[in-house]
Amino acid sequence: MHSGSGSIIASRSAFTHTGSPRPARPGQLDQAIAEGLASDVDPERLREVAHTTAWALLSKVHKTDDPAIVERVLTLVDREGVDVIAELWSKAEPDSLPGVLWRLYLLRSWMRKQRDTIARLWRLGEPIATSASAIAGVDSAPTEDDIARTADSILTGAFRGDFAVALTRASVFVGIVALGLRVEARELTQQANLNPVGSAAEQSKRWRTQAAQLLHTAANLNITSKDFKHGAALWRQGKLE
């Protein structure tokens, strides 16, 4: 069975690694985050907190030369837990700063957790879009460690470099992984068509189901890729808020 099947789920709001527990919540939250987690906050207030914390975080890292602060921000989801960050940013629109940062953090977490699967899917998709490696900053045949380093460098670039460039890299990267999933789906469909009847019919049916699941995941990833691309355009126009 292809390991891409059922192992990656993407949506407009998240990347999730199935079968792995979510990071535990720590005993102490950053003050800015803690102030935004009251259960009685109304939606408009939560929206204000999401935008305020996103801008404060981005501004803080851009202004500092302290590597410890940079590392702390980059590993925010690792330390605080994805649930905690989700309470702040997951409901933000994809064309907003908190919405984009939410997707960037989840992209990093997803890439690091599924680096082996993603490396394989990149190798399948990249030859079809030959300029992707140069734009995303990934080798044409990346190792698992290359994927992890790329995950960190995209998020680091968002905070320490050109935000639009980081979003463009994220967009291209996610799009190529989606392309790799479509390649896998096509291969499964071809296998299924070779054995349409008899004792192999049941296996053919399973392959078609897997192919459909891969295509569904690829479609979701393409939506996220477009969200990143749109976010980059808005940032360049000074309209990402």
Rank of each mutant, 00 (worst) to 15 (best):
A219S: 13
R182K: 09
A211T: 06
N220H: 07
Q237D: 11
A232T: 05
L179M: 12
N222R: 07
V197Y: 10
S199N: 14
A192K: 09
G231R: 01
V197A: 13
Q213T: 02
T209Y: 11
K226D: 08
E187T: 04
A201I: 15
K205W: 11
D227W: 03
G238H: 10
P196V: 13
H230L: 10
E187N: 10
T209E: 11
Q203T: 12
R208E: 11
G175T: 07
G175E: 03
G198V: 14
G231D: 02
A211S: 04
L221A: 02
W207Y: 14
N220S: 06
L181K: 05
E202V: 15
E184W: 08
I176E: 01
L181Y: 02
R206I: 12
A201L: 14
V172E: 01
L188S: 06
L181M: 08
K239V: 04
F173I: 00
K229M: 08
A192L: 05
Q210K: 06
L221V: 05
W235T: 15
A233I: 15
S225M: 01
R208T: 12
R186P: 09
Q210D: 08
L188T: 03
F228Y: 07
W235K: 05
E187H: 09
A201Q: 15
V172I: 13
K229D: 04
A233Q: 06
G231K: 02
P196C: 12
D227T: 00
Q237K: 08
V177C: 06
E202P: 04
L179K: 06
Q191I: 13
R208L: 10
N193Y: 14
A201M: 12
Q213R: 09
L214R: 02
A200K: 04
A185C: 04
P196T: 15
A219K: 04
S204L: 11
N220D: 09
L194V: 13
Q190K: 14
R186W: 12
I223N: 09
L215Y: 07
G175Y: 01
L221N: 00
L214M: 13
A201S: 15
Q210I: 14
A200I: 05
A185R: 00
T189Y: 11
A185I: 08
E202I: 15
V183Q: 05
A192R: 03
Q190R: 15
L181N: 02
N220W: 02
H216Q: 12
A232W: 04
L221C: 00
E187V: 05
R206W: 15
N222D: 09
